[in-house]
Design a protein around this nucleic acid. Structure first.
Lengths: 252, 252
DNA sequence: CGTTAATTTGAGACCATTCAATTTCGGTGG
DNA sequence: CCACCGAAATTGAATGGTCTCAAATTAACG
């Protein structure tokens, strides 16, 4: 059985979080999975369920969200191609939130049992997976700050900055431009605002010359000003995990 | 060198997250640490730093927070005695937020290197630590929803419910009552509100007979109604981690 | 090319904020 | 033990950022 290259991006990203041996990489590439094409708004995980599989986004975008009693929806995070959207369920058992596709997507569903086995047998991979969940966690913290203590324009600008940097890291941008995978209603659900107000905020950001945005195609015209408008500082994305350096330093 | 019982609560809590062997427990109890008494508002971790130690709260309360450009503070989580407040820094390197004591506290500072070694040598302990960070993560997600999509009264009621359940789990309550370790200004920083409005909300909750609160002593008079007022559902606290059951089931 | 979703704009209402002042609480020293 | 002081809590009045409601326009998609 030849290892399928579909999981190569996974091995590649995890290798950025922790040093992986050839054996580690091979074990990742040998994970069993089922490739699945799904439409927009497809539910990958439902709150309260105990999923038996983990979903790796091969193509397309997804988001996690919760719904309050009176039907308001809060989006908790956005996921880009190459990300495992529900790793935590393997360890926590019951899903505490929903995961849904933003766009048409291709996912690889990996049996949780296989992931458990991988964690058990390849501690370095487990370490990398842990770090991935910790970076998720850091992004959640920043989102708490964003919706809790920033005004509407700052919130939206901050989100657009975050997406720019993460898209760049994923190779999905060209010259500070990317295809925004969110409707204005979904931007509102990310930022705790109403769609109407998001529309006005975007108009203001356009008016100031910070961005251009038409038919979902976003371009950041003045990154410095957008970062300032969004009170944005990228430390929380941990794109240069210090752990690697620290480990290398400790080993040398 | 006899193992100090000070770390026993840590071993106990981690054992709830993953099955620990005698060797695992001994390794935890053998961790080196320095006991330190600190005053209120003492900084345990500062954003941007690369801490060399982890802080275990032995007595007292702490909180994590970030400050926006214009000086607004958002509290991201509250920590009870027995919790490791900055485990993630061992793996991420640079702290992306501040940690500060809410009250006078006693902490055990554990060298990160020792924790790293523990993770490497006792995979079951590493697993438990990972699960602890995942539960943290789930609480962050709920807080995003709380500040993003709930009105003021619901936010405060939700927070009071969360604290009640966590205090109960830590054995810090009597008859639905506990000592609230937060000022109204700090409650405001948790919920993304102003101190003035928190005061009015608390008055309303008292007026409805849901709680009594005087001089920091809180009693939940009508838990059912407070849960309803706070749109509260405890799934996200993962107080009964399903992973344990799942692992036991898989092993049996 | 029709149909539905998404975006855009306006006007009025409201929840939470800001600003300001007063009262109460908690701790400390005389 | 009481007086004092700063911090915390409380209350009022006015402002304002965001929401709600409603309608029109444009874009997306089969």
């Amino acid at each position: 059985m030849v290892s399928d290259p579909a999981l190569a991006p996974l091995a590649e990203r995890w290798a950025r979080y922790a040093p992986l041996s050839k054996g580690d990489r091979d074990a990742i590439l040998a994970l069993p999975f089922r490739r699945k094409e799904v439409g927009r708004d497809h539910h990958l995980v439902r709150e309260g369920q105990a999923p038996q599989n983990c979903c790796l986004l091969l193509e397309g975008f997804a988001f996690r969200h919760k719904v309050t009693r009176d039907g308001a929806r809060q989006i908790i995070s956005i996921h880009l191609p190459g990300e495992l959207v529900d790793l935590q369920n393997s360890l926590l058992g019951l899903a505490d939130h929903n995961v849904q596709t933003l766009t048409r997507a291709v996912v690889a569903t990996i049996p949780q049992a296989a992931l458990q086995e991988l964690m058990d047998r390849q501690p370095a991979v487990a370490r990398a997976m842990w770090i991935e969940t910790l970076i998720d966690s850091s992004i959640f913290r920043e989102w708490v700050v964003n919706v809790g203590r920033r005004d509407a324009q700052t919130r939206v600008a901050h989100l657009l900055c975050e997406l720019l940097l993460r898209m760049e890291a994923a190779g999905l941008t060209r010259e500070h431009g990317y295809d925004l995978p969110l409707t204005q209603a979904q931007l509102a659900d990310c930022t705790g605002l109403t769609p109407v107000h998001v529309n006005r905020v975007l108009k203001a950001l356009r008016g100031k010359g910070l961005i251009s945005l038409e038919s979902r195609s976003l371009r950041v015209l003045d990154l410095h000003a957008l970062r300032a408008a969004g009170d944005f500082s990228e430390l929380y994305l941990h794109h240069q995990p210090q752990a690697l350096a620290a480990q290398a330093g400790a080993a040398g």
